[in-house]
Design a protein around this nucleic acid. Structure first.
Lengths: 202, 202
DNA sequence: ACACTTACGAAACACTCCGTATCGTATCGT
DNA sequence: ACGATACGATACGGAGTGTTTCGTAAGTGT
């Protein structure tokens, strides 16, 4: 019992190898995209066997999902006092995550792959939406937004713009543009109607 | 010279077969997505050989690009008198195209595939952007928008929302919500700054 | 010291798919 | 009739996925 208490029997998983797999896969994903990414080539580049990868991740999709998840840090969303400051922080957090890989945000498109998306939906999109809803609810209680504001339309407008620019057009958005868009959405907020909106996907 | 003048020698291409290939591929694409779509299975379902497909389209990406292009009708954009009416028509045209395949808009995600996107970029995204720019320029000359309005940010906000809802969340957007978003963007339009914006992609 | 359990690398495997090539047939113009 | 092209069927090479097997390494418990 020279080490930690909760040790499993047998040879322990090489966590350093896990890191190397993720970083290498991340690089190759950024360069080639999902389709052209080969598990065999990742293994070769890392210097390990495919076995090591497939023991950790069920399939290529799970690997890539984990790569993307590891690249995206979802921080806390403290109350910054105003809806505009809150939303700006919310959206900038997204941009910051992707700036790490300069133009190689090529990898971000892998998000849309059918084998990747469902896994990311819960841990990323839904999580992010919940943060957004909190921000809007705070604004409502502050009186900055009307009570019948449509949470999802407002949030999806921002998320859509970010996603469209980052993963489709691949052009960075100036912070001032975000300020303008947020300003527009807050000044003239989208209303909720009687109809219920589903929460579909994936 | 019993038929048209510009007839090529040899057996003519079966245009009905072309249509069947496109519609069948479209259906299968909607059901399975790009990756799982198999050219062989399309050929089998159509009842033709792979040769017939590969003679028409260079590869799977070209086939899918043509499928998507054939599903999207880009109509004219007549002046409807006001920026709000123009933009609403612009965005509804998008939604209408996808309503054909009810929930099978699964196929739309294929747009993001590296083998498909570049082909569609010119014939679809750029074309659509040009229409949007015209709409905005008309609005400026009407005095509905300031001269320093940022065309791309405004258009990308609308395009991003549409794309995010259609191909990611897969929830139809009520027309009234579009009206609200357009209202917000027109009432508080995003400004252009001194910095130049690139026109990157694909 | 020994058994047990698990991780690892290497290699071979079956399976699927892509895109090409070949061959014989069908269908058009001249 | 002749040349040109489209077509279906089939076989092929290349690549990738995910599984399996095997011998070895690295830990834990008795």
């Amino acid at each position: 019992m020279t080490s930690e208490s909760t040790e499993k029997a047998g040879r322990p998983t090489d966590e350093d190898l896990t890191r190397r797999i993720l970083t290498t896969a991340g690089e190759m994903l950024g360069e080639r995209g999902y389709q052209a990414l080969s598990v065999e080539q990742v293994a070769k580049a890392v210097g390990c066997g495919k076995t090591a990868i497939y023991r950790r991740y069920a399939d290529k999709g799970a690997l890539v999902a984990e790569v993307l998840r590891s690249q995206v840090e979802i921080g806390a969303m403290p109350d910054r006092g105003s809806i505009r400051a809150d939303l700006l922080e919310h959206v900038l957090q997204n941009q910051r995550n992707q700036e790490l890989s300069p133009e190689q945000s090529h990898g971000l498109r892998a998000m849309f792959e059918p084998d990747v998306f469902p896994t990311l939906w819960d841990s990323f999109f839904q999580h992010r939406r919940r943060q957004g809803v909190e921000i809007i609810d705070r604004a409502i209680s502050r009186g900055e937004l009307p009570e019948d504001v449509h949470h999802d339309i407002l949030l999806d407008t921002i998320a859509g713009l970010t996603l469209y620019r980052q993963s489709v057009k691949r052009i960075h958005i100036d912070e001032r543009h975000f300020v303008d868009i947020i300003d527009a959405l807050v000044s003239t907020p989208p209303r909720r109607f009687a109809d219920a909106d589903e929460q579909a996907s994936p």
